[in-house]
Design a protein around this nucleic acid. Structure first.
Lengths: 204, 204
DNA sequence: GTCTATATCATGATAGAC
DNA sequence: GTCTATCATGATATAGAC
């Protein structure tokens, strides 16, 4: 949907709720602010979503899917491991740069909720995906193409290198004294840098 | 202070407030819950801290210092770069394992506040520290001891590799299907793994 | 479907007795 | 210093007119 099209009320609500929940989290978000940003009033907001909790669930579910859908496709494919890693970095980098508040939001809300909530959203999805990746790593190691490494640690390394600098954006800007433009450039450089860093670390 | 000593009311408040703010963040925290965990009532809590905001500032300031004090000492010393990196990983790993909610808390609250708030807490401190590190990296690169790398990117890499898996603990436990004990073991392995990974990536 | 007005409830904060 | 009781505010949620 492009900006100039007329949004339905439902769409206006979703868009506004995404903004506010992603920025402020569940507890920081205000139904009032969501209604305002959607250009409607609180009564109408509650007409569409009976409660803040319902609206949140809807927003969170979409966010969670954005975070895991791409990784899943990549890790399950049968491309060579180096291209998998590069694709993983590129896809995640695209996603977090386009939705800078998404990772923090998902991470925080997963943390706020009990373990069974986390399992419900992640477990089934992720087991197969990961074991495929693990096997791919192992065979490359066996062939002497990669330095031996625990596949779990490697996967965590890659994701850390991409997501953390987005979650920590405010610190980063202070830490290396960046303006907004410099930060964007830094992250764009980072795309290549992370790929090279991981590649270099895996040299046998 | 050990557990069996009698805590002053002030100490009980600080300890309880740390727990609650670190777990729930500013907006999720309740003065009621802080009073309960401290074993006092809300009236007394407000006698010590006139407002939630004041109490928060006090807790946040300590948390922020925990996050930057160690890194600063290490990066400013004149040890060889490889030992600096190892020390940095060890120190940060110790800290985040002992205070698993600390990084998320600091990161979130920095994000919730305006840029000048961030600058106030970080800027002056960090400039000198970083330029020292940058020079150390550069001379090692010049000597051919390290593969050329942007010092900013390297520093962000190291911090990402240590902190992210703590911030993302719930995801991690699902992603690689870990129990609490397995997670702790994973993180303990990680201490060596990160050092080796960074070291390997920097081989010329 | 959309709005205004209102009910309900929880929270931060204060007042005052002891 | 510590407690109980209460206030004031602001947020979610509902009722009802249009």
């Amino acid at each position: 949907m492009t900006d100039k099209e007329v949004k339905s009320t439902e769409e206006k609500i979703i868009d506004a709720a995404e903004e506010v929940f992603h920025e402020k989290g569940y507890f920081g978000a205000r139904m009032r602010e969501i209604a305002d940003r959607a250009g409607i009033n609180k009564g109408l907001l509650h007409y569409y979503y009976k409660s803040k909790a319902k609206l949140f669930e809807s927003i969170f579910s979409v966010a969670k899917n954005k975070m895991i859908s791409r990784i899943q496709v990549i890790l399950e494919g049968d491309a060579p491991i180096q291209s998998k890693i590069d694709a993983l970095v590129d896809q995640y980098m695209d996603m977090v740069l386009k939705n800078p508040n998404l990772p923090r939001f998902v991470l925080n809300e997963l943390n706020n909720n009990a373990d069974d909530f986390v399992s419900k959203h992640f477990d089934e999805v992720v087991k197969l995906t990961f074991s495929n990746f693990q096997q791919a790593i192992q065979s490359e190691v066996d062939l002497g193409h990669l330095k031996p490494i625990d596949a779990r640690q490697l996967l965590v390394n890659i994701i850390s290198l991409v997501i953390f600098p987005v979650v920590a954006k405010p610190v980063l800007k202070s830490l290396v004294a960046l303006s907004e433009e410099e930060y964007q450039a830094f992250m764009e450089e980072r795309r290549q840098q992370v790929k090279a860093f991981v590649h270099d670390a895996l040299r046998p």
